[in-house]
Simulated scan of single mutants.
Amino acid sequence: MRHFGELRRCIGTISESTLSRQLRELVIDGMLERINHGQVPPNVEYVLTKQGESFVPILIAMKTWGEEQLGL
């Protein structure tokens, strides 16, 4: 589970609106689950769904391929 702020720090340079939009799309697509703890200030966490977890090996393979193509 990751909070919005944690995700933003991990990613680096990204606007809040862009990150919010991307997270919302990933929730709609079934890759993430959004857990709202109903607190003020908002306490929201994101966690990979089973579908999201199944995509991780594909992302790792794509990262490896890209690094090999760039000679990293």
Results as ranks from 00 to 15, higher is better:
48 L>W: 04
56 V>W: 02
22 Q>R: 15
49 T>D: 11
53 E>T: 05
50 K>P: 02
55 F>D: 00
45 E>L: 11
19 L>C: 06
60 I>H: 04
44 V>G: 01
34 R>T: 07
1 M>H: 06
9 R>K: 14
14 I>Q: 00
55 F>W: 05
70 L>P: 02
29 D>T: 02
60 I>S: 00
8 R>P: 01
25 E>M: 11
65 W>K: 14
67 E>P: 00
51 Q>V: 12
7 L>Y: 08
36 N>M: 04
18 T>L: 07
61 A>W: 05
39 Q>K: 15
14 I>N: 00
62 M>L: 15
4 F>L: 09
18 T>S: 12
27 V>L: 05
66 G>M: 13
38 G>P: 00
19 L>Y: 01
66 G>D: 13
48 L>I: 07
11 I>T: 01
24 R>N: 12
14 I>C: 02
10 C>G: 06
20 S>I: 02
13 T>G: 02
22 Q>P: 00
52 G>H: 08
5 G>V: 10
23 L>M: 10
45 E>I: 02
54 S>C: 03
53 E>C: 09
27 V>R: 02
51 Q>L: 15
68 E>L: 15
7 L>I: 15
6 E>H: 03
17 S>F: 09
56 V>Q: 08
20 S>T: 14
70 L>K: 13
9 R>W: 09
18 T>N: 07
4 F>T: 09
7 L>K: 07
22 Q>H: 14
2 R>H: 14
61 A>N: 11
9 R>D: 07
42 P>V: 10
51 Q>F: 10
25 E>H: 10
29 D>Q: 14
71 G>A: 08
42 P>A: 15
22 Q>S: 11
31 M>V: 08
32 L>E: 05
59 L>E: 04
5 G>Y: 11
67 E>A: 12
15 S>V: 01
62 M>K: 13
2 R>I: 04
29 D>E: 13
32 L>I: 04
16 E>L: 01
20 S>G: 15
65 W>L: 14
51 Q>T: 13
12 G>S: 06
10 C>H: 11
49 T>E: 11
52 G>C: 11
26 L>D: 03
42 P>L: 09
9 R>C: 01
29 D>H: 04
59 L>Q: 10
